[in-house]
Design a protein around this nucleic acid. Sequence first.
DNA 1: CCACTTTGGCAACGCTGTTGCGAAAGTGCA
DNA 2: TGCACTTTCGCAACAGCGTTGCCAAAGTGG
Lengths: 378, 378
Amino acid sequence: MTGDKGAAGANLGLVRSHNTALVLGLLRDAGAEGISRLELAERTGLTPQAVSKITARLRAEGFAAEAGRRASTGGKPRTVLRLVPEAGHAVGVHLDRDELRAVLVDLDGAVVAGRRAGLDLGAGAEAVLGAVCAVVREVVGDLPGAGGGSLAGTGSLVGVGVALPGPLDHARGVLHRVTGFPEWDGFPLRDALAERLGVPVVVDKDTNAAALGLAVGGAQEVVGRSFAYLHLGTGLGAGLVIDGGVHRGARTGAGEFGHQVIQLDGPPCECGARGCVEALCLGAVARGEIAEAARVLGVAAGNLVGLLDIDGVLLGGRTVAGAPDVYVRGVGEVLGARARREGADGGVPVRTAPRAERLVAEGAAQLLLAPLFGRGDA
Amino acid sequence: MTGDKGAAGANLGLVRSHNTALVLGLLRDAGAEGISRLELAERTGLTPQAVSKITARLRAEGFAAEAGRRASTGGKPRTVLRLVPEAGHAVGVHLDRDELRAVLVDLDGAVVAGRRAGLDLGAGAEAVLGAVCAVVREVVGDLPGAGGGSLAGTGSLVGVGVALPGPLDHARGVLHRVTGFPEWDGFPLRDALAERLGVPVVVDKDTNAAALGLAVGGAQEVVGRSFAYLHLGTGLGAGLVIDGGVHRGARTGAGEFGHQVIQLDGPPCECGARGCVEALCLGAVARGEIAEAARVLGVAAGNLVGLLDIDGVLLGGRTVAGAPDVYVRGVGEVLGARARREGADGGVPVRTAPRAERLVAEGAAQLLLAPLFGRGDA
DNA sequence: CCACTTTGGCAACGCTGTTGCGAAAGTGCA
DNA sequence: TGCACTTTCGCAACAGCGTTGCCAAAGTGG
């Protein structure tokens, strides 16, 4: 963000935004129940007075509001605060090979509006950009202030997140190669969209967006602060969440799970290598050997768990959706056996990812919302 | 550190220590050349005035000193500042199965003193602790203020870092299982040593210490801010550096590289699984097929590079030392082929790790020094 | 009704980095 | 030799952060 070498001096504004984001995050996590000032103080380690100042500012800006009070414990009852979800919105766009999906999400992460449309990635940049912009304008249509040529005047709109499959550069917002569509090589998607829409745009891989959506959507309570989202559809990829943030690597290349070699000199993969999980797993699926596919997936997941010491694994994608229990059980067994070998009781938890169809689009919206709640730029 | 849920409110003291650590880190990286105040300001993003205040404090405390001036560029020449290495020291202990090695390191990372001793891990906690303490006292012997029963009075001594092979808990400083020595199960090594020595003690895996030592010792310029250190000796393990910090995972379990399965249903490994890299690689070494061992290692390294998008790979350990070029070339070829398949020119750099014998001990010392320079607790 | 507990805001405070300004220490040209 | 200019860097005043001390508000319980 600031420096080029990771050096970033802190000043007072940074302290303020950090603590504000922290409080906003706790307000969101508290949901409809709300949370009291003193509880916020405990959780942040700040003094009650500091929390009072911060929440006063948030209330003045419309991001927080009072919402009743708790029962007394012998003194003045605590006032409950809650997030005002309508104070901010973001659009998430899931750009797939043949489909376009957009959602409008509020601060709470709730989907306010959604649209789907067919898409032909091969139709050229102009057509695709136009389609994306059109869908984005549709979903923001109901927001107060929307409607102008630019969306910059749409008060509560933070920006637009776009998630798509190909290799790309998250930091620069540039596509690398979209398999089968060479004309997209090096296309500056982020800047092109930002100029047309007049609001900030963030671009990321679909699996990263999905992982972020899961991290924000309460996956942490199920599978911990570090987990992997494994997507098994027409291909096999992963999104990694480490310590609550998406791990992308310097070139947004992290999460290349499918071409992990788990069979030395095994059957050739279309990537050119031999023995990739993707080839083995999808091969087993094609032969109808779902249990074997699950086992193979489990072995690769086990490698990942061992390398990173993550807390859990979430499974998603069309292929998994076809027989979720088989995959969850199959992967779980491999991980359990691995854990027992190491002396632990059970392996890390394995679950299916919720909200399957809209997961990527919702996660794409979180690319813009998450920073507000103190998740860095992850 | 502060909270249990990752929430950590920032106050002014935190800002101060953050910026101070940042400046100290840049002073160290500048080495004997030194660095001017204005350069520090540019690199940190702070104002020159803020840097002046911080460096004034550091000079008053003895951590920094003026060291000549640069050539003028038309005005007053910049005053060069440098770190005062003797202002702080840390001891690093490498506890291996049959050997004990300790070094005294100054702020610059330079080894001031070193000792080696034989060791029998099976001799019981009392004997081992005694041996460690004795060696530590020997290496700190020359420091002013050393000599008392407790080392707490030794002015410039920050603490003692201990690195050893087995699975352990870095956060709690407790050993899990030391293969072959069941009596160490659950032993609170950190607290036991801290009590005896009277100074802070940090415990970590040997591969993590090595990786930290490399990260601090300039590996970043060779292999980037994210790299893996692969150690091939009697076993095969890894230390991961991600964004300049050691990645350990919640249970200090990360870096389990050797039992990554790369041959489905392959030859049995002593861990109980089949087809682990460690078994395949060491098996090839035993058969004298070093090139094959290097290729196998390269495949596993490729999996890691793909999963994490790291910038480079460093190789170390006794087995690698036997034929370094073969391993560097073999691993490099596999990574290069992988990169070419993905459209990149060359793979990530592969090198041998320098300072082989003392690497772990020096890294162990950095467990205490690194936090002073703003590397979190990594 | 009163003593007590607990919440939470107001005001003063200490400390951070920032800004305004001037002294110090060079260069370069007349 | 002298003067204008550039650049460095510290002193002093300042704005803004969370903290502390204090007190009003709002409950409970005898």
